[in-house]
Nucleic acid binder design. Structure first.
Lengths: 246, 246
DNA sequence: CACTGAAGGCCCGATGCCCAGACCTTTTTC
DNA sequence: GAAAAAGGTCTGGGCATCGGGCCTTCAGTG
C-alpha cells in the first residue's frame, strides 16, 4: 500500500489555509454584524426604519427570535431603538451612538484587512471599467463634487466616500462583490477612525477619485487598477504611521 | 418623533445586499467543503495522508465527532479512505473518484462566480506585483515551463495551473487571500470541467501566464491587472458558449 | 370612545448541531 | 506479548435555533 506523501509535498502555507480553523459564525452573530456594519457605514442612515420584524426575519431567512436577539444587541449598543404600536418599528438611532474603539485583534491584523480591501477594490475597479454604464458614472461624479464640498465635515465626507466606493461595486452588477465590499469597508472604517484626516489629504484623495472615475469611464482597466491601488495605498501609509508594525 | 426615511433613500441594490439571507454554514458543512475543495484542486494530492483525527480536529477547532462526520461523508463520496491501526490514517483516494457534475444552482449563477474570481484574481495580481519576491517568481516560472510540457495531459495541466494561481496568491503574503482563491477556484473548476480544452487554447493561456509573471516581476501593477483580466476573460468566453446566458 | 390592525415584546417546547470525553478495535513495532 | 498509534463507537449535555402562540402598545377609524 501506498503511504505517506507520495507526490511532491505542498508548500506549508497553502496547507495552512486548508487546515486553518473553521469559524462557523452563528446566525445571531452574522445578523448583528450585517446590520451593525450597514448602520456604521451609513447604508442604513440615522432615522431610517427597518422592515417589520416579521418581514425582516423572512428576508434574512432566520427565525424571529434569532432576529430579535440581534436587534436587542444592537439596541443595547445604542445603534437601534424600537417603537411599539401601530406605526412603530425599529429605527436607526439618531444621533448615532459614540463610536467604539476597534477590537485589539482587528488592530493586530490591520495589514491583512488592508490587503483584502486592496484585492477586492482593485478587482472591482477593473470589472467596473469593463462594464460600468455612463448614467451610473454620472451619479458617482456627482458624489465626487459633493465630497469636495464636505472637506471640513469629516463624518459626512466619510459617508459620501463610502457611497462612492459601494456605488462602484454596484456598477459591477455582482451582488456578492457588493457584499464583500461592505464587509471589508466595515472593518476598515473602524481603523480609519483612529487616524486624523486633514482637509488637504481629503482633497487629494478626492482627486484620486476623479482620476479613477475617468479611467473607468474610458474603460481603461489598467489605469483603473493603478488609480485604485494608489488611492488605497494612501490610507495604508497613514495607518502605518499610527498602528503597530506587523 | 422622526419617522420613516428622513434621509435620501438608498438605491435598492445596496439594501438588498444588507437584507440578503444569512447563510450560516455548519461546522460540518464547512469542513466537508474545505477538505473536498482541497482534494479536488490537488492541494491534497492523491495518496496524501491527512493529519491524525485527534490532531486535525484541534487544528480545525472542532470536535472530533464533527470532524468524523465530514471524513465519513468524504469517504462515502470516494474522496478519502481510512486505514486503521498503527501507521494507518486517512488518505486521499488514489485514483480520484469520478467527478460529479456541478450543481444546477452553480451553473445558474456561473457569471457571478466568474465575476468574483475576476475581482479576486486581479486584486491578487496587483498585490503580487507590488511585493512578490524573485525567488518565488522563479518557482512560478518553472511551473509555466512544466505546463508547456503538459498540454496533452489535461488533468495534470489543470493541477499545475491551479498551483500557479495559488502560488501567486501566496506571493501576496495574505492568508485570507489564499483562502479566498481556493474557494473561488473550487467553484470554477467544477465549471471548467464542462468545457473542452484543446491544446492550442492551453498553449495560448500559458503564454498569458508568461506575460502575467513578467509584469509581476517588473512590479508593473497595471500590466499585471490587464494580463490577468485578459487571461480570465479567455475562460469566460469559452464558458459563455457552453452555458446558459444569464 | 371603543374597536381594530399593525407593530414590537415575551415565552415555551422541540430539534438538531456540536462538544467533550471515555472506551473499543485494529495494526504495527519493539 | 506489550506498547503505541491510529481509526471506530457511544453517551450525555449544552446551547443555538426554530416555530409558534400570546400579550402589550398605540394610531387611526367609525
Amino acid at each position: 500500500m501506498n503511504r505517506g506523501a507520495v507526490r511532491a509535498p505542498e508548500p506549508a502555507s497553502s496547507l495552512a489555509a486548508v487546515f486553518a480553523p473553521v469559524r462557523s459564525q452563528t446566525a445571531f452573530e452574522e445578523t448583528v454584524e450585517r446590520l451593525g456594519t450597514a448602520i456604521k457605514l451609513g447604508l442604513l442612515p440615522a432615522g431610517a426604519r427597518l422592515p417589520a420584524e416579521r418581514e425582516l426575519c423572512s428576508m434574512l431567512g432566520i427565525a424571529r427570535s434569532t432576529l430579535r436577539q440581534a436587534l436587542v444587541a444592537l439596541g443595547q449598543s445604542g445603534h437601534l431603538h424600537a417603537m411599539r404600536g401601530r406605526g412603530g418599528g425599529t429605527f436607526v438611532a439618531d444621533p448615532a451612538p459614540p463610536t467604539s474603539p476597534p477590537s485589539p485583534e482587528l488592530v493586530a491584523h490591520w495589514r491583512e484587512v488592508c490587503d483584502e480591501r486592496m484585492a477586492i477594490e482593485v478587482g472591482i475597479a477593473v470589472l467596473a471599467a469593463e462594464r460600468a454604464r455612463p448614467e451610473l458614472l454620472d451619479s458617482l461624479d456627482a458624489l465626487v463634487v459633493e465630497i469636495d464640498g464636505l472637506l471640513h465635515d469629516y463624518p459626512a465626507q466619510r459617508q459620501a466616500d463610502i457611497h462612492l466606493h459601494v456605488g462602484l461595486a454596484e456598477a459591477t452588477g455582482s451582488a456578492r462583490l457588493v457584499t464583500a465590499m461592505t464587509e471589508t469597508q466595515g472593518a476598515m472604517s473602524d481603523l480609519i477612525l483612529l487616524i486624523p484626516h486633514p482637509p488637504e489629504v481629503l482633497a487629494s484623495s478626492n482627486q484620486q477619485h476623479r482620476r479613477l472615475l475617468d479611467a473607468v469611464r474610458r474603460h481603461d482597466e489598467a489605469a483603473a487598477a493603478r488609480e485604485m491601488a494608489e488611492h488605497l495605498r494612501g490610507t495604508e501609509h497613514i495607518l502605518a504611521g499610527f498602528l503597530p508594525p506587523p
